[in-house]
Every structure is written in C-alpha cells, then in structure tokens.
C-alpha cells in the first residue's frame, strides 16, 4: 500500500504568523486592541468590533478538552495508519478554541474537561502542528 501524504494546512496570508510561530514551537493567536477580544482563527479584521488594530500574542498553551473522539475506523485515507487517534476541540485559558489531536496518552483516557497543554509535532519541512497532551501533575 502506498503511503498517502498528510494534507498540509492551506494557509491564508494573514494567518502566516500563526504557522511561522508554530514552526518555532510557539502557539499564538490574535488580540484586538480595539475591543480587547482574543481571536482564533486569524482574521483580516476583528470579528467582534471589525477593527483592523490586531496584534499577535503568545498563548499560555494550557486549556481544557471541550469535546473529543477517538477515531477507530473509516478515517480519511491519509490518517488510516494513525488509528486510533484522538480529535478534540480544546478551549485555551485565553478563551479561544482549536481543533487538534490529543497525543502522548492512551487515546481512551481522554475525557471532556481534561486539562491539556500544547506540544508541537513536525509535519514536514514547512509545517509544525500544535497538538495537545494531558497536563502533567
């Protein structure tokens, strides 16, 4: 069986700082100086107050599992070899939410509201994906 390459993020120019930071193992999101709202995913203007005055800030990397699932069969072709793998929506301390994978633990140990922290997994030469792992201690 031929290995199917993993899909890489199709990056919008205004989100490039996010992926550049991920390559340096930093998790960043946008912050609106107009209304103080934290923003993810990256936008061209604040989705709350429509201001252009956005800055990038580094996340604590800590959050909770809002919801999760363990993929055991019928995965997309490029992910068949990864099964079982965990897909989760993680809510960061700063209030923004990501879809990612929970790694570094028994997939079946993941539960809602579990505390997690960011880890970085290199996808290829160009991309590093932020993933999450159960918080230690």
């Amino acid at each position: 069986m031929t290995t199917i390459e993993k899909p890489v993020p199709v990056v919008n120019p205004w989100a490039k700082p996010f992926w550049d930071a991920a390559n340096k193992e930093k998790l960043v999101f946008q912050h609106c100086k107009g209304c103080d709202k934290n923003i993810f995913y990256p936008r061209i203007a604040c989705p709350e107050c429509f201001s252009d005055d956005l800055e990038w800030i580094e996340a604590s990397g800590k959050g909770r599992v809002y919801t999760y699932t363990v993929v055991e069969s019928n995965a997309p072709s490029a992910f068949v070899g990864d099964m079982p793998y965990v897909i989760a929506i993680v809510k960061l301390e700063e209030g923004v939410q990501f879809l990612s994978n929970i790694v570094g633990c028994d997939p079946h140990s993941v539960v809602c509201e579990m505390p997690v922290e960011v880890v970085f997994e290199r996808l290829n030469d160009a991309f590093t994906l932020p993933k999450f792992t159960p918080m230690q201690g």
């Binding site: 919008n12 995913y41 994978n101 994906l129």
Partner: peptide, 12 residues
C-alpha cells in the same frame, strides 16, 4: 483546509 483537515477531521 487550514484549521481542521490537517488533523484528520471528517464527518463521523
């Protein structure tokens, strides 16, 4: 394609 496909997301 930017925020979910790379993590193995699908409808199930």
């Amino acid at each position: 394609a930017e925020w979910e496909v790379p993590f193995g997301q699908h409808y199930s």
